[in-house]
Design a protein around this nucleic acid. Structure first.
Lengths: 205, 205
DNA sequence: GATTCCTTGTCAAGTGACTTGAATTAGCAC
DNA sequence: GTGCTAATTCAAGTCACTTGACAAGGAATC
């Protein structure tokens, strides 16, 4: 986007440019945060300054195309998703095949569903939801534990799920619930891709 | 930070108190964060210093009882919840075909996943999770609204989902998220059975 | 009662992540 | 080239949180 309408004037257009600028920024931020990167880290990886990123994420400035390209490359997203138009379903329905992709590691990809938790200023949201696709041999990064609760449903494939001291072998259609304070970890033990619909809250009460 | 081996005997106990201290801190922190409070704000409300809270949340120090009382009061929780043991162990995995069945109405059945643990205000648990099977023509009982959030994934079939003013037609693989305060309702609009993996929290913060 | 030890609590300085503003640079129109 | 605009940088500022040194208060021991 951006220099498309540098030919000045154009009253009405200004507004929509502004909002899509902001949406671009928001999505970049979301991608960054879901990958656990700080502005500093992303700036280093994409070879630009931290403050530029801050401005881009907040819609104060529109990145040049080469810049944007480097950003989505590092983030493992694509430019298309950054500009996808709201289709009236935004925020409610996430269609199969049209969910934002999150690169996790070479053997794992995620599809985001509700990532609101990571957007500041949206207090009130507890549910975090996404789908993990794990290629044969893929596994989650080390057992982790944190506060909260998790539930999930194995859509396809076969995984080994470790929770606390126990290990379970799950196949398509199985589901699970556990307290995130128990160390947990999973691994694809099948020959094919496994997909898990995964929901968690950052809190228990 | 382990006072575990500070001369004075009591070996085993020290360790478990240390972890429960940390759990207390973690839960306090989550309560605070899910309410959108900063340390500063909570400190002001509970009449103590920011740094004390920081230490308490990180398990460096255990708050005095009067202090803890003020904290849970401001946070709207109670002291009991802060110390409740995680009951993980059993009830982690729910196998396909071995989940407790719940009769909803002639055209709808439910499979419980975490329902039995989360009867209204069961302390310590937020996630309610189940699978709805809706025969052709089946629909949920009238539009309802309540506090909380919901997410779901359509495992099979086709449904019409109404949320707020909008109606969406979903097919297998589509997912959704919405605020439960919007009136919501669904109906099977296909010729076959539809199944939805459904998760909700009874609360937003 | 005084001494020692321990722990909650405070203050002030420090850190890390992000934002803002002034100055610089690149791109394009003329 | 000049002149403009918008992207980009550097340095300073802010905000949330953490750390460390120290004071205040108990309880156990002398």
């Amino acid at each position: 986007m951006n220099k498309i309408d540098t030919h000045n004037s154009k009253g009405g257009e200004e507004r929509s440019t502004a909002t899509s600028l902001l949406r671009l920024g928001t999505r970049l931020k979301l991608s960054r945060q879901t990958r656990g990167l700080t502005l500093k880290a992303l700036a280093a990886a994409a070879n630009c300054s931290e403050s530029l990123l801050s401005k881009v994420e907040n819609g104060k400035v529109s990145p040049s195309l080469p810049m944007l390209h480097r950003l989505v490359e590092v983030l493992g997203t694509n430019i298309g998703w950054m500009f996808e138009e709201a289709d009236g379903e935004e925020g409610i329905v996430f269609r199969a095949g049209a969910r934002p992709l999150i690169a996790l590691d070479p053997l794992r990809r995620g599809e985001g569903i509700s990532l609101e938790r990571v957007i500041p200023y949206s207090p009130g949201h507890l549910l975090q939801c996404n789908i993990h696709h794990i290629e044969a041999g893929g596994e989650s990064a080390g057992p982790i534990q944190h506060a909260g609760e998790e539930v999930g449903y194995l859509l396809e494939g076969a995984i080994e799920l470790m929770v606390g001291e126990k290990t379970f072998r799950l196949s398509a259609g199985d589901s699970f619930v556990f307290d995130s304070e128990l160390p947990h970890w999973y691994r694809n033990v099948g020959d094919e891709r496994a997909s898990i619909f995964w929901v968690n809250t950052p809190a228990t009460f």
